[in-house]
Nucleic acid binder design. Sequence first.
DNA 1: ACCTGAACACCGTTCAAGT
DNA 2: ACCTGAACACCGTTCAAGT
Lengths: 229, 229
Amino acid sequence: MGKGQATGDVMPAAGGAPETASPALSRERIAEAALGFLDRHSLDELSMRRLAAELGVGTMTLYGYFRSKEELLDAVSDLTFDRVALPPAEGSWREQIREVVMVVHRTLAHHPAAARIRAERPILTPGALRITEAALKSLREAGFGAEDAAGAVRLVFTYLFGFATFNPARSTADARAQATNALAALPMEDFPEMLAIADQAVAAMGGEKTFERGLDLILDGLEARLASS
Amino acid sequence: MGKGQATGDVMPAAGGAPETASPALSRERIAEAALGFLDRHSLDELSMRRLAAELGVGTMTLYGYFRSKEELLDAVSDLTFDRVALPPAEGSWREQIREVVMVVHRTLAHHPAAARIRAERPILTPGALRITEAALKSLREAGFGAEDAAGAVRLVFTYLFGFATFNPARSTADARAQATNALAALPMEDFPEMLAIADQAVAAMGGEKTFERGLDLILDGLEARLASS
DNA sequence: ACCTGAACACCGTTCAAGT
DNA sequence: ACCTGAACACCGTTCAAGT
């Protein structure tokens, strides 16, 4: 499926090529370049024209490797998740799930566009499902039923992608300042609760600690479900 | 803030105007039209040109009401959340939170684009924060500390928007068939767990039951947190 | 005051052609 | 086999003008 369509990653005329010479194009190399672009710019800024220019080729050259921009973005998504290195399955089921989730979380934090690409399109490629498979194995061995395990995986997936998409990237000082200002502008009489905990509300808007606290709460819920079955 | 920039919703020359005559333009009426468009089409399909055409005005007319497409989308988002009718605060804190979450969930399910619009932009308008305020009130009265309450609200927000964005809309038969096929194509030796529960995995991909099961698990986690503090 | 066409600087993609 | 410019049908938005 998919990846083998490239022409082989042979360097052109091995030997004293100048450093500016680029290796032969391939689906992989183009997807790689797109991923690199997306780590530096937003998804909206990625265009076939800009990407081609960055690779030093004509725009239409890319269409020799991908049928459409959508197919290219699918490849970027695959590349991202193919690279996730699964942690060894050690410790309790809770520790195992936690590790898998954190590995995916770090990937999404490092490649902010990866989650966005996936919006409304399901993830159904082997490279990505391999991660689901590992989580499922830990849960089933711990005693979760088929339905509970499937629901748990889905909940965690929704949390991972939701967090990556709807929390200010890297919770910049800028985003915090903006939020603080917006809250300060609220009328005290209509928003007593929010204003009383404004500091904590702004802190909870993003960052590692917020992610992990939410994850731990979900794991608490899973633990309770397991105990009562 | 904002909404009062319109010129007033006066009908033009009240009287025997033909039915095709449209009421005077206003920020509200344009945002309304955009929301209607988005309920029938995807976010990608909304363009200033198409929206203007649908309203029977020139494209540039819209720029007399909104400085940019982004500002228009913000208004659509505001409109959506302004309309959420908060349920009466009755019953236990858990019932109260559950009701608020379900009301927002129904809104997002009815207006699929609303969540997408919000990706990476925080929600900080009074109409939306009013919902947060209600949730916060229930949690604080129940005894949640400032940090726990802020974290709970954030977790629930992430779940709501993550679910709306990353689960196949309305879990159509089409999406299910696609998922079933993709799973059936996996090699049995690499995906034993996934294939053993394929039916449940596909069922968990979307739908009301999946949403509510995830929500109840989060509420279980919150309950445990409250009990242990 | 309110509305707008033309124009500019972009898009993704088809097509017919270049080597 | 691999690459590509021109062209088409779109975008959001600026500007200068219309009533």
